[in-house]
């Protein structure tokens, strides 16, 4: 089963390799990993999608919590949450095909962000299913390059996974 973890970490050097190193050393599989700063400049948030059964997940969570730089680990898989991923895709597009591709973009509410002589670059956000469908629709035209950010997620409504009053670290 796939689980979505939200991991708050101190913004210190090396925190990324500690987390990634932990996954590789203990043989946990990362499906996707997205990381960036949060509303607090001292804190980054990692959204990690990990594959494994309940036991694996328990170990992943506990081992992550042992890292000194990890502030909080939440498994939000069973909660109501909004998840998005951004994809950029560069597809072959001869002038005759552009119309069709733009129609596809419309359907997925994607945007054209760059236009080359024989290529179009599209940007699309959405959940996993949508991104997958988007990719499939473009495939017949020839996807020359594609990049995905990995999933990011927040709980719905008035639930939070952050922590209040994270200290301004002296460190």
């Amino acid at each position: 089963m796939r689980h979505t973890l939200t991991v708050l970490v101190a913004n210190s050097p090396g925190v990324l390799y500690r987390v990634v190193g932990l996954f590789s050393r203990r043989g946990f599989n990362i499906d996707s990993l997205a990381v960036g700063q949060t509303e607090n400049v001292n804190v980054s948030r990692m959204t990690i999608v990990v594959e494994g059964d309940a036991l694996v997940l328990e170990q992943v969570t506990k081992q992550l919590r042992k890292l000194i730089d990890v502030i909080k680990v939440s498994n939000i898989t069973a909660e109501e949450f909004v998840a998005r991923e951004l994809v950029l895709a560069k597809v072959t597009a001869n002038p005759t095909q552009r119309g069709e591709i733009m129609q596809i973009a419309d359907i997925f509410r994607a945007r054209i962000v760059d236009l080359g002589r024989r290529t179009l670059t599209l940007e699309c956000t959405g959940d996993e299913a949508k991104i997958k469908a988007f990719e499939e629709s473009l495939r017949p035209y020839g996807i020359k390059e594609l990049v995905r950010t990995g999933k990011i997620a927040l709980l719905r409504g008035s639930k939070y996974t952050n922590v209040n009053n994270i200290k301004e670290e002296a460190m």
Binding site: G14, Y17, R18, G21, L22, R25, L67, I68, D69
Partner: peptide, 11 residues
């Protein structure tokens, strides 16, 4: 620090 990351509690 890279070499010892997996064998220290922290560094």
């Amino acid at each position: 620090t890279g070499i010892t990351a997996p064998i220290t509690k922290h560094n």
